[in-house]
Amino acid sequence: MIRTIDVHKSFNEQEVLKGVTTEFFPGKTNLIIGRSGAGKTVLLKILVGLVTPTTGDIFYGDVNFSQLNKKEMRAIRMKVGMLFQGSALFDSMSVEENIRFPLDMFTSMTWKEKAMQVDSCLERVSLGQVHKKYPSEISGGMQKRVGIARAIVLNPEYLFCDEPNSGLDPKTAIVIDELIRDITIDKNITTVINTHDMNSVMEIGDNIVLIHEGKLAWRGDKSQVLESTNDTLQQFIFASPFLQRLRAAALERSQEG
C-alpha cells in the first residue's frame, strides 16, 4: 500500500499541491483523476520520486519514501514499474532490447532466462513477433503494450501509469485498461493510474482520487461515481452535455427500476 500524508508542492511562488492525504491499495487499480493543471501529474511524479515534495510524506508500506537517500530510494524503485504517457521506449533499442534493459541492468540472469522472461512479458501483453522491431516501426497501442511489458519485467510490487490511454482510439484504450487491470489482479500489485479517460474511471476505477486545485476533492470507487453529490466530481465527470444526458437517463432508469 502507498500512503501520502499532507503532501504539499510549490514551484517558485505557485502552490500546486495543497496538502494531499490519501491511500493507494494493493490488488486494485487506483486512479488519480482531475482537470488539466489540477496537480495530478505532480502527485504521480512525487509518488515515484521524480519530484520532491515541499512538505509531507510518502509511505511505501511502512517505509517513508520521502526520507530516503538516493541509494535507498533506488532499492525501492527496483520494486516499481512505470508506463509513461509517451511510452518512453528507447529509440535506439529494439522491442526485445527495451524489455530486456532492466534485466540486463539489474539481474544476473542467463541469456536464456532473460529471453524467456521477455517472451513471457510480451505474451502477457498479447504481443508476438515484434521482438526485432524498433519503437518507430510499431503503432501507438503496441508501444503502450511494450511499455507495460517493460514495466512488469522485473515483477514490480507497484505499477504507475501516466495517461495510459492518451492518443489511443477507444477500442485500444479499453484493451490497455483491461490489460492493466488484469495484471494488477494477477500479480496483486498496487497500480496507480493518472488518467482523464472517463471509460477508465467507470470500468477499472477500484479506488478513485479526484484532485482539484491541488487538493483532494473526492475519493471513492466506480460504483459511487454516479450517485455522488460532490459538485466537483460531477462537473469533472459529466463535463460534456452528452454525458450529462446519459447520466440523467441512467438515474431515471435506476429510479424506475
Binding site: L50, V80, Q85, G86, D91, M105, L154
Partner: peptide, 14 residues
C-alpha cells in the same frame, strides 16, 4: 524531453 531519463531513473538506473 521524451522521458527516457525519467524511465531509467524509475528503474533505478544512475
Amino acid at each position: 524531453q521524451k522521458e527516457h531519463i525519467d524511465a531509467m531513473e524509475i528503474m533505478g538506473v544512475n
